[in-house]
Design a protein around this nucleic acid. Structure first.
Lengths: 335, 335
DNA sequence: CACGGATTTTAGATCGTTCTAAACAATGGG
DNA sequence: CCCATTGTTTAGAACGATCTAAAATCCGTG
């Protein structure tokens, strides 16, 4: 209640030095003599002084704050990513401003504006579906350092951290073909993002490489219910697939549910493979074969990329792409 | 690159008015005449002016920023909660500073300090395991408005938003007893939090009410692997349970996995009930009966509580407790 | 047309920090 | 004893907004 804020000036007064000196101590400058440093540090501890970073930023332009924009906070793909980012930032004594674009480019712009108002040092962005491809360019012109992650818009304009979705899909398809599957369907989402495009491209590419054939592409809403409902469409394809590759694990899990309802036992009657290897992949029945994209690692890398760019604004653009790993489980076995 | 920051003064100069007037326009004060307002707004738009909230806060003490501390970013209980908080804050034109305490009180203190330095208006805190019970009091003395959520430490010192875990457990036990189960075990976690205590208390209380008896309490690490490993201990209990209530759905799902490995079919040989009703509850096999705590709603309420307190610092302490709902699914059927 | 009151506008101080440039202290050489 | 040199400290002006209190403008009346 009565707690007045302790300021530099207050510390200076008590310690019998000038504000400038205290400021130097706060910033661990080597310019201050040891004995004054100690004296000042003691006073700071006694008074429970907390440096006001906002005021500091006003003067010197570094808020030690970064904005993170994700399209979604329920899919653990994004929250694990977020977790990685938060971890790096914490280690680096930075703080994360979080916002959820809900995959809406308009909201996303609002958020960027808000972040700008808060003086963020930089932004890590998973661009929302339908993001204007020259948003990155506009941001660069406004002087906002940006790292894109998980999805990308515009080419080579900003740093980027993600996984090699294409290779991930190839791993999955090879695994299926190796297991004797030759008619493979793809369960996709409607939302147009780079992640989707890459996965779809990977699908046709990998089919070409392996000589397997597409049994068709079915689209579902990005929820397990949507996927469950799509089971009917999947079973009604002209060329009935023996295996289905899904855009991600949520869809795969939903599909398995829908298949079982329709009397088709996933893993036995129809192989199902997911992508992302979310934790839930181990908990479905049968456990879901999936491709691990390690979103937490991607988050860590995105954090490092941003740190690098903040340190050196004109560094060359860099892409950091993680190699996925295939996790084989029951949903793609024939036993 | 060359973008210089557009300031109030710049806008004022171009519009031919004083900074003070522009400031009034920015804050939508009714004091400005309509024609000047329009003129100024036009200039602001032309110059792409963004108000510097940090600078504003320095003068008037409202950063429109709140800190959120969660113990964990992989359990969707917390991320759904976070999602709710973020949503309310966004609507209210506030911004969320996110940090993960990793259930470590020391980290948690660091984070609180950091938040203070960033001038947050208030904090929403899910206290880490082992948090000093008078942390809330200390924070109050420092003048930091706090709302606790999901877990609570200290009694009635801060506002609190959570679910009625006790009632949730009661619902689950009643359901089991109604289904003919009389020997019920509890799968708990080791971590000492108010959530755990309340659930455990609820367990014994509900057993008393219904006349069922405890088959024992088993502790597991809070991961699905931990729960899977505990299946053995569960099956080895002296009085073999016919049903198990689990601290949360992650444990329940893990336990089901472990049971099946041990040749005991969950849902048929042993009923399993979870708590929290995470999305994964629908995706396990058999689908998991659980008690919905609606963490996203709790997040929304926590946000509102904090907004209220920021508006009125001396409002009476309020608790907002959500009534849980039982979601009956296959894991507790006998068929 | 002068006056009082309401409506608009503004100058200048202020928030807590950092920066710049200069002052001050200590030391050693000539 | 003065001066240059190095090492420490500091006064005062920023940063970009908001607040306060006062000034300027407008308007209807007497």
């Amino acid at each position: 209640m009565n707690r007045k804020k302790v300021t530099l000036a207050e510390v200076a007064r008590v310690a019998g030095v000038s504000r400038a000196t205290v400021s130097l101590v706060v910033r661990k400058s080597p310019l201050v003599a040891d004995h004054t440093r100690e004296k000042v540090e003691k006073v700071m501890a006694d008074l429970d002084y907390v440096r006001d970073i906002g005021a500091a930023r006003l003067r010197n332009n570094s808020s030690r704050t970064v904005g993170v924009i994700v399209p979604n906070l329920v899919n653990s793909f994004f929250t694990e990513f977020l977790s990685g980012v938060e971890q790096v930032m914490g280690e680096d004594d930075r703080v994360v401003l979080l916002a959820n674009s809900q995959d809406d480019p308009v909201r996303q712009n609002d958020i960027l504006q808000r972040f700008r108002g808060h003086g963020v040092d930089g932004v890590i962005l998973c661009p929302a579906e339908g993001t204007d491809p020259d948003l990155p360019l506009r941001l660069r012109h406004r002087g906002v350092p940006v790292v894109q992650a998980l999805r990308e818009v515009g080419e080579g304009i900003t740093d980027y951290a993600g996984a090699d979705y294409l290779e991930g899909v190839r791993l999955a398809i090879r695994h299926l073909v190796g297991g004797g599957h030759h008619r493979i369907a793809f369960l996709s989402v409607a939302a147009q993002t780079s992640a989707r495009e890459e996965r779809l491209r990977g699908f046709t590419a990998a089919l070409g490489e392996t000589g397997a054939s597409s049994a068709g592409i079915v689209e579902a809403e990005l929820t397990w219910e949507g996927a469950a409902q799509s089971a009917a469409a999947m079973l009604a394809l002209k060329t009935r697939p023996t295996a289905v590759l899904c855009f991600n694990d949520v869809l795969a899990a939903g599909l398995m549910l829908g298949l079982r309802r329709a009397g088709c036992e996933p893993g036995r009657d129809l192989a199902v493979v997911g992508l992302d290897d979310l934790p839930l992949a181990r908990l479905t029945y049968p456990p879901l074969t999936s491709v691990a994209m390690q979103p937490d690692c991607i988050g860590v890398r995105a954090g490092h990329l941003l740190a690098r760019r903040l340190a050196q604004a004109d560094a060359p653009v860099q892409r950091s792409v993680i190699l996925p790993r295939l996790m084989i489980r029951g949903s793609s076995h024939r036993d």
